[in-house]
Simulated scan of single mutants.
Amino acid sequence: MLLIGLFFGTGIGVVVAAGNDLSLTGHDHSDPTHHGGTDHAAMHVETVEAPDGLGLSVEATPDPVGGYNLHLDAPNFTFAPGSASGPHVPGEGHAHVYMDGVKLGRFYGPWIHVPSDGEVSVTLNANDHRAYTRGGKPLAAALRLD
């Protein structure tokens, strides 16, 4: 019965998707209308020069329950969750946090918990996801947790 249900359930799902012009191929990152008219693929490659005074440092404190609490000190930077994926506003955006080279996600505030030891790196990114740079170098901070 389980196999029959899976077979017919899958078939019905395919018919419904086809009837609604849906596909399982994902979305086209080169589509300029994706993300409010910004080329999604380019957003993760292009950069934007950081305004004067914008900086970044990170400190870690061991959490008594496990992992570490990171504090991002970002002078002259405003975390702007309501403007995510919106137009660039100098000095606004979010942080991208990486653990051992793997992106943990976007963060919209100065405090972050990471669950384990490892190499942590943080970048500041504009609302439109471009990385802030200074003199062509990423505005980033890194530290080893162990």
Rank of each mutant, 00 (worst) to 15 (best):
A80F: 15
G136P: 08
V102T: 11
A131T: 14
G86W: 15
S30K: 15
V89W: 08
G135I: 10
A18K: 15
L3T: 04
E92F: 10
G19T: 11
P62Q: 12
A80S: 15
G109W: 07
T123E: 14
A80I: 07
D31G: 02
V114L: 06
N69Q: 04
F77D: 00
T33G: 15
S23T: 15
S121N: 00
T133V: 14
V48Y: 05
L24A: 10
A41Q: 14
T133H: 09
Y68M: 02
G55K: 07
L72Q: 13
H44Y: 15
A140Y: 04
V122M: 01
G5T: 05
P64W: 09
Y98D: 13
G66T: 06
D117G: 05
N127R: 03
H129S: 06
E92R: 13
I4W: 07
G109P: 01
A50D: 03
P75R: 03
A50H: 06
H27Q: 13
L54R: 03
V120P: 00
L22Y: 04
E92A: 14
D28C: 00
V120L: 08
P32L: 02
T33Y: 11
D52M: 09
A74Y: 01
M99Y: 08
G66R: 09
G53D: 12
F7N: 11
L143R: 03
R130S: 01
L6W: 15
E49T: 05
H34R: 13
A140M: 10
S121I: 00
T38P: 01
N127Y: 11
A18E: 12
K103T: 10
S57A: 13
R130M: 02
N76R: 13
S121Q: 11
A131C: 07
V122R: 00
G13V: 05
T123V: 08
H40V: 12
H129M: 04
A18W: 14
L2Q: 14
S85L: 10
V48K: 03
S23L: 10
V97R: 06
P90R: 04
D39P: 07
L139Q: 01
T61I: 03
S121E: 01
G11N: 07
T78D: 14
P81R: 05
V15C: 03
H44W: 12
D73N: 10
R106T: 06
Y108K: 00
F107A: 02
V58C: 05
D52H: 07
L72A: 13
L70M: 02
A80V: 07
A18I: 09
I112D: 00
T33M: 14
D63W: 10
V16W: 05
P75H: 10
G26F: 10
M99I: 11
H27T: 07
S30W: 13
A42Y: 13
V97E: 07
M99L: 14
G93H: 03
